[in-house]
Nucleic acid binder design. Structure first.
Lengths: 374, 374
DNA sequence: CCTGGATCTGACAACGTTGTCCAGGCCCTA
DNA sequence: TAGGGCCTGGACAACGTTGTCAGATCCAGG
């Protein structure tokens, strides 16, 4: 074994040096040994290779690739030919390292598969594209740790900015990043423990309007099913529900509220309990789209007609019997507004963090206009 | 002017050199002038800064950051302290440049806002995450040029691999990339003009089954509304429709087919025409989810009961009256399978490009089982 | 023929990280 | 106590690109 290792040692450790440049001359075999070949991107051609083939200098290739002026058409042609022949493509990692800007922004969202976030994500992408930036995204799956991990990974990639749909409620981990100049906008839910830009829907007002709508149609015993109050949107909507009830002078019974419930099985149970309890509700307000779809299923099975209003619009809501009345928020507008603020931060146009609330819209389709039946 | 420029010229062009290290000593003001300050990421601390603060060597910091062995707990603690104090975050661009792998994969899809692609995208992300990679994505908006632009931009970022939902039908632009070792998997639709891995649904078989289902319930005049046949999935589904009709010995009339139609207005007109034409259909087969939602709206307005089967499942399909019978494809499975093949390409486990077809599933809910009414 | 200016081209350093290699200190054994 | 191996730490080059700056070339005007 000692023999084996020692046999790899070159006899003379001194490395020959080029007299003119002072550069070390290292045999190709040794030089290459420092690269782990399996780690390379299949040895793609570099500008150096293109330059050699076109018989020009490195910088000239760079100029052609970037469309900088000061290159004769003839030279440009030769370089372009070499580029095509070699299949050269500029290495943006090196470019980023040199230039300091990545022309990409990150999006941390909760779940790409949720139909609410698709349009939001798409809107962010469109704005990014208009500014020549790429979008890198990741799903936190509603896990605060994963949100942090993702956000910081994106910062390590040196994204120019970050749009975050928070899963957690403590974002102090972003402080060094903000200080370092990473543009950041929180969307859908506010940042926790730090002062940052955020773009929200008017969750409180929307929920209040929705519940008031039910009250206006004669309901007094109204149920609320929503997510955990530690989630800002859920808390605000609950607050809106309470506000509407209080405005109407209706005392809320505990059995009418079910919090922290989103998975279909538990939503179903919660809905059934409030419909059959000692003080059965005549209407239900759902805190988000996932709750809505389950509650609708439960209501479809009831013989009694129960009124319903949901937060978030859902597809085909108009085709159901009755049509589903909802408080709609504009996911695309949320994404667009957030992304635009992000780029204004990057421009330097924007300095003071603000909280922006976008209005919601009550869409009446039938289910919310049913009279109390008891 | 000559004076002005010459005044910036140092008298002596030779640059002072440190005797010990041989490094050139350059005055700070000159060194900094080469950076464009507005391009820097707010002067984030580097490993060098951390090393200086912790009083250790550069490589030691690198070891701590990467959890490499060979650092005493005491040294590690000092380094960690410096990292926290300075808010250091490793620059992954530099890391990528050095290591050659980006630990990220790209996804080029058609439209993030389409509910079909949400789960697909999410599935790709989950697989990527399991392999420690980030997902960078972009929407082609069904535009072949934009698809190419995006795919090549991702290659310039040196993503390790690429999952592409093709918009175009000529992918020769990817040839240099494939040669350079960029792992590539096409999903939902096959690659055009090149030999590459692809993962598809059984569009032909699914459509044939769906149409055969209508035929089995007594229908003979069946309409087909789908996308442009230049899109592979649309062509295959049309072929499935024709096959089912032919199997049953039913000649297809031109007025029963509407191709290249997806926007709601035109779908509506197409559906109405086949319902009222000289040879009115008693059933409609829809080629994708967007067509489905519009056709359902049109059918809901009809007095006559028209049978319906759609390709792609839609949310709440079971709650409509009647329930919507569909040929469902598993978007998540498509994404998962594609991403897994991608990483097997990167492992080197996979060499020959293959075409994989995933089965579809007919879900009967009522609309496809209506008898002909004419 | 020379000079001055404009235009084009290329040499070189630097961006921040990691792999390699070597030096020095330590411990263990003979 | 000498000689070895092991452990820790640091110097240095290289990754591929771009900004700077100076050299080369060419032309017009004297």
């Amino acid at each position: 074994m000692l023999d084996a290792t020692s046999s790899y040692k070159p006899m003379d450790r001194r490395i020959p040096v080029d007299d003119r440049t002072g550069h070390r001359i290292v045999p190709e075999t040794i030089r290459r040994s420092d690269r782990a070949p399996e780690n390379r991107y299949g040895n793609r051609p570099t500008m150096k290779d293109v330059a050699a083939r076109a018989g020009v200098g490195l910088k000239t290739v760079s100029r052609v690739v970037n469309g900088e002026p000061g290159v004769t058409p003839e030279t440009e042609r030769r370089v372009q030919e070499a580029i095509d022949a070699l299949g050269f493509r500029r290495n943006d990692s090196a470019r980023v390292l040199r230039k300091g800007r990545t022309a990409s922004i990150g999006l941390v969202l909760e779940d790409l598969a949720d139909p609410f976030y698709g349009p939001l994500s798409r809107a962010v992408e469109e704005v990014a594209r208009a500014h020549g930036a790429l979008l890198i995204n990741g799903s936190s799956a509603e896990d605060p740790d994963r949100e942090q991990e993702l956000a910081l990974a994106l910062c390590a990639r040196r994204v120019d900015g970050l749009v975050i749909i928070p899963a957690g409620d403590d974002h102090r981990y972003m402080e060094p990043e903000l200080k370092a100049g990473v543009a950041t906008v929180f969307v859908d839910r506010p940042a926790g423990q730090i002062d940052a830009d955020c773009v929200l829907s008017d969750n409180h007002g929307g929920a209040r309007d929705g519940v008031a709508h039910l009250i206006a149609h004669g309901h007094r015993r109204i149920g609320f099913i929503g997510d955990m109050p530690r989630i800002h949107t859920a808390a605000e909507r609950l607050r809106g529900y309470r506000a509407a009830m209080e405005d109407a002078g209706i005392p809320v019974e505990d059995s009418w509220m079910s919090l922290g419930v989103t998975d279909p099985e538990r939503v179903r149970r919660a809905a059934e309990e409030m419909l059959t309890g000692p003080s059965p509700v005549t209407a239900i307000f759902a805190g988000n789209n996932r709750v809505t779809v389950t509650v609708i299923r439960v209501l479809a099975e009831q013989t009694r007609r129960v009124a319903f209003v949901g937060f978030d619009d859902i597809e085909l809501a108009d085709l159901l019997q009755p049509g589903v009345t909802v408080v709609a928020q504009d996911a695309a507008a949320l994404g667009r507004t957030a992304a635009e603020r992000l780029f204004r931060q990057l421009d330097g146009t924007l300095v003071t963090p603000e909280r922006i609330e976008l209005p919601t819209r009550l869409i009446t389709r039938g289910s919310g206009e049913l009279p109390p039946a008891d």
